[in-house]
Design a protein around this nucleic acid. Sequence first.
DNA 1: GAAACAGGTCACCAGGTCAG
DNA 2: CTGACCTGGTGACCTGTTTC
Lengths: 498, 498
Amino acid sequence: MNQTCKVCGEPAAGFHFGAFTCEGCKSFFGRSYNNLSSISECKNNGECVINKKNRTACKACRLRKCLLVGMSKSGSRYGRRSNWFKIHCLLQEQQQQAAAAAAAHNNHNSQKTPPPPPATLAMLGHPGVYPPGLYPPRPNCTKEELMLLGLDDYKHPAASPSVSSPDSHNSDSSIDVNVRSNTLLRLGKPMDANSMSKDLFLPLPFPGLSSLPVMPPPGFIPPSHLLFPGYHPALYPHHQGLLKPAAEHQHLLSNSHLANNNSRYALNHNNNNHINSISNNNNLNNNHIQNNTKAAEELTKRFYLDAVLKSQQRSPVATTTVTTTTYTTTPTPMHSDSISSTKKDHHVDDDQRQDDHPTSPHDHHTRIETEDESVDGESEELVVAMTPPRSPRTNMQDDPIDLSMKTGSSHSSKSSIASIDDNRHLSGGESDAHSEDNDDDDETTTTTITTTIQKRPQFVAAVANNISEDEEETEYERDMKRMKMQVTTTPLDLTTRV
Amino acid sequence: MNQTCKVCGEPAAGFHFGAFTCEGCKSFFGRSYNNLSSISECKNNGECVINKKNRTACKACRLRKCLLVGMSKSGSRYGRRSNWFKIHCLLQEQQQQAAAAAAAHNNHNSQKTPPPPPATLAMLGHPGVYPPGLYPPRPNCTKEELMLLGLDDYKHPAASPSVSSPDSHNSDSSIDVNVRSNTLLRLGKPMDANSMSKDLFLPLPFPGLSSLPVMPPPGFIPPSHLLFPGYHPALYPHHQGLLKPAAEHQHLLSNSHLANNNSRYALNHNNNNHINSISNNNNLNNNHIQNNTKAAEELTKRFYLDAVLKSQQRSPVATTTVTTTTYTTTPTPMHSDSISSTKKDHHVDDDQRQDDHPTSPHDHHTRIETEDESVDGESEELVVAMTPPRSPRTNMQDDPIDLSMKTGSSHSSKSSIASIDDNRHLSGGESDAHSEDNDDDDETTTTTITTTIQKRPQFVAAVANNISEDEEETEYERDMKRMKMQVTTTPLDLTTRV
DNA sequence: GAAACAGGTCACCAGGTCAG
DNA sequence: CTGACCTGGTGACCTGTTTC
Ligand SMILES: [Zn+2]
Ligand SMILES: [Zn+2]
Ligand SMILES: [Zn+2]
Ligand SMILES: [Zn+2]
């Protein structure tokens, strides 16, 4: 993936401590985080601009930058990147490109007033309060981290810092993908409801699909704020621009070297945590859809990914837009797998949303809209509510990308996920901060990724055939029949399972 | 359903090793269980609070948490688990929570004298020795597992880690589930008379519960002592509050890293193992089931599971009560592979069972009695003699699976399969070899959208149809009917399956 | 037929190393 | 100190099994 280090701009080695960074910045952050004493005060009033060449010149500013881009010890991600993560990265990338293109175009007019965001982007909030090059503090940031950015006075409330907002982002958001891109459409033709034919991917017509509910699992989606220059306002309606520090980094607070004088970065940190928590906890359950379920989700995910990738391939500057909105959902644990989608003509039904009640602890509903401008023909919209797939069922092999859709089990509950976290307290003692705080929030953040998609021929074939399948299986059924019962008893084993 | 990982709080991927957990905790437990040496001592005195963000910070505490929430390799099995298993686990959990709450409440009064347990609980023994937030060791826990929770001094017998007496746990107690919670009642839908009355679940009055209509197969129920905060007194009359470690985890015992210093959690581990083993081996045989057959059971099962899950979701401290009774069973070691059952009306064909071979060394005869009070009509008895099908299963080590088996022949043999496993060799360890294997799928990475889709024709079809599928249960029901019961006993394997 | 779970695979990341 | 490189571990995804 072509990611660049968010701190210095060098090609990124990976996603480290919550941000795409190079090896150097990764190591630097890792070393510095627990050894603030080694960081001397900035001689330039904390205003150093960090880039590849001068990154070693001012440790204070480098660390500050790290924190600004969302690095956090608690924001670490382990293991393979989920397909959702990849999708988001791709979308983000597209978005950025589009934004850049738009900006370039608009600059002629007025530099100060950013062009109104596309309708779809509107929901994201203001695009840019932060100066170019600087990112707003991430939700993932812990209190300490935020403190480092400029707050010294913050008293950290108590042990339970984190939960609040940070997590909320990630975890709960569901995404609606609205694909408008004509390109995609063109590729496929409207699908028939019955058959998915090759057109499968054509989002539009896809009635069934259209309703796809696939929602990314909570942790999989990079924080929206990170994805774009500004963080998503919807998530923090009550305090725009207000970030709440997490308790996590308190130890860092004592070190004033990292604070810069720029007031623009100062954050409020009243105890708003609870507020955030509440807002974040909304679930969206709306998905209604039931019928389709996993299958739909699977297809959807894959579909999206493909669409995104293609769109990227075709038009460098994709017009895909992602909007994130928070919906309240019903707390009902029950399933919410349903997918709802509406096409252009129809528009998204609100009813879907109706469910939302704020009650649910956390859910955010995110909408992603992809547009392909290159083709403006028919633009259709596909709105998809995605629910986190969770179950792996999919089978994909390992391909890098392939999003295998997994079917999730449609468990209904998808939405409820995140709630927990509160407990975090760190344990211990040690110092580390890890613990506590914010854990939640961080999910991954991210950036763009390009991945290659894989393929699965058989799948393709099946799709092409419109299904066909195979059925090989009777054997197993036969066996089943033969077996009346099986009982295993194990002497010692207490556990029995039914 | 929207379960969260009981270890870290992340959305659960499924029910793994006895508890709802995320993929990460599942893998962690799987890896750690057989490789305790990789776990270093907690730097925080064993008091780390595990959550999503910091779960990787302390392996010792993470593993301890896994054990506390009931994870056990001994209780695991290869394929899907029956709903009974889950039901019991859930009930157990509820009970624990309730007990913990009660205990917390009562501690004010007198710590030493636990409040009298609810009638239904009475049999279980004292409710709460464990502090809130901590779970009592579960029945599934093997000695080793228990040891890990708090015992350091235990010397582990030998190298052979697993095999020992693990089995003991499981099996023996049967459980009557008495559901009182009104909540549950409400949740469930009325059942069909045939099947079970709807009221079935209404516990309350549950006199019968009173007679549970459906009683889980012996092996499936977690040991009562583990089910609740306290272990089941019946099993350990001589030493209350004394938990005995299962032999299974002895290898773990040697590792003291997992123990935390909190004395409250300390367990006795005199060599009482044999005692436990004995007590654990009791089987309950009486079941009589009645009219309803499997179908009813199925429905019931499903119903219960749903009710339990819902109730959990709603009220953390569920009111569901579970009573456990110990039945003496015939210890007969003989094996009888065959299963004999007699049902009232129909009876199960033995022929089906014939497959089972007695080969397995151990067989226990278990009687399961299920009563459905709701329906009192004819009560039938089904006596099943279970024979351990394969031994393999039992013990399997870790990987029963043996992939090698692969389908091949019919499964009848399946049962026998596992035995082997031991060999699991990992494949490769070596290096890599890996594989290539998967190549097939991949095709090239490509581009076209169509390709990306993969398999799962059915899925596609479903989507295409826009529908949902579903409900095909009948087929399954039919099978169920055919199958009277399934019990597997594995010598070593504690886990039984139904 | 499809869901769900144990186990395997391997893309990825935190950390540790150690020349520079 | 820095950061390329290595190592241990992590967990998303997949395969095969078992249940529904
Ligand atoms: Zn860098
Ligand atoms: Zn500076
Ligand atoms: Zn977990
Ligand atoms: Zn610890």
